[in-house]
């Protein structure tokens, strides 16, 4: 197990290095931030001073090496636009996104998996058909459109829920959280719902397909022949057997939502990193883009690693093979 962890850490290091180079080159190609940073009527002198101050006069490889050097000291640089350390900037926005993502992904899983199991267990019942219809809807209707419909219905027409922003927050360990106040929760509900619909649909499908397949196996027949109740069979046998694909998708969704909740955050003016990255792209705020993309890559590495560990916990066959 330890060997496995060390091997993965080394892989992660190499991957991060490659990503940093790709990101650096990619961001460099997007455009020259000088045009955004300096007003068009600045003098040539100011222009050159600014270019030098940001190190933009150096060749690309030199800029990259400087960046790596600073990185090794934990310094991601300063935002051109906000003129503050990039990490501080990102971490000030991250809790909002984490909160939104966790609410959406957990909500989708905790609701989608049981409903999917039911739909797989009783495929012909009208309730199952309704669940499947809902999941088709979640799959096929675009997120932004659902977001707008939600706002129009619940915020504008009915006036039950707020249309945007985080609402009241509570500070814990220097981080602000919305879900601890009633007002914050009402603000969280619509964007989380919006974000979770697609994931809910996916979880329903996965759980349903897995359950249908598992119900036909000899494992289930043998458990029935031993007199085990249908509830025991679903909760102890089937759930464990379908857990692996569900955990995989859960991890991937967690990662991609943390990274790309952009659409929902924009529609609901949710002050998370998704909005930050969109803004930084339009202002060509290179340090923010680079740091953000590297953070996303890091996040995926951590999540994949966690999912692998979860596999071993869920499937004893993998555990033995790895130990061998």
């Amino acid at each position: 197990m330890l060997g496995f962890v060390i091997q993965r850490l080394m892989q992660a290091f190499v991957v991060m290095l490659v990503i940093s180079a790709l990101v650096f080159v990619g961001v460099y190609a997007v455009g020259n931030p000088i045009d955004v940073l300096i007003s068009p009527d600045a003098t040539q002198l100011i222009r050159e001073q600014t270019i030098r101050a940001y190190g933009l006069d150096q060749p690309l490889w030199k800029q990259y090496l400087d960046f790596l050097g600073r990185l090794s000291r934990g310094d991601f640089g300063r935002s051109f636009v906000f003129n503050m350390p990039v990490l501080d900037l990102i971490f000030s926005r991250l809790p909002a996104t984490i909160e939104l993502t966790l609410a959406a992904v957990f909500g989708a899983t905790l609701l989608g998996v049981p409903l999917g199991i039911y739909a797989g267990y009783r495929p012909e019942s009208p309730i199952s058909k309704a669940i499947m219809a809902l999941s088709i809807l979640g799959f096929s209707v675009p997120t932004f459109w659902i977001g707008l419909v939600l706002i129009f219905t619940f915020a504008v027409t009915l006036g039950w829920l707020p249309a945007g922003n985080r609402g009241d927050t509570v500070t814990i360990f220097g981080v602000q959280w919305s879900f601890l106040t009633w007002n914050g929760l009402t603000h969280l509900f619509l964007p989380a719902l919006n974000l979770s619909l697609f994931k809910f649909a996916m979880m329903v499908r996965l759980a349903r397909a897995g359950t249908r397949e598992t119900m036909l196996t000899d494992t289930v027949k043998f458990a029935r022949a031993a007199g085990e109740s249908e509830w025991t069979i679903l909760s102890r046998h089937v759930l464990r057997l379908i857990a692996i694909p569900i955990v995989t998708v859960f991890g991937l969704e967690l990662g991609s939502t943390l990274a790309f909740a952009v659409v929902t955050e924009t529609i609901f003016s949710w002050p998370g990193v998704g909005k930050l990255i969109i803004d930084s792209i339009s202002t060509l705020d290179r340090p923010v883009m680079v740091a953000y993309l590297m953070l996303v890559a890091f996040l995926f590495i951590v999540i994949n690693f966690t999912v692998d560990i979860a596999y071993a916990a869920l499937d004893p066959r993998l555990r033995t093979r790895r130990a061998a």
């Binding site: 494992t219 027949k221 102890r236 066959r317």
Partner: peptide
């Protein structure tokens, strides 16, 4: 087939 009847994850 005992490898199909026993639950592999329990």
């Amino acid at each position: 087939d005992p490898s199909a009847t026993l639950n592999p994850v329990l």
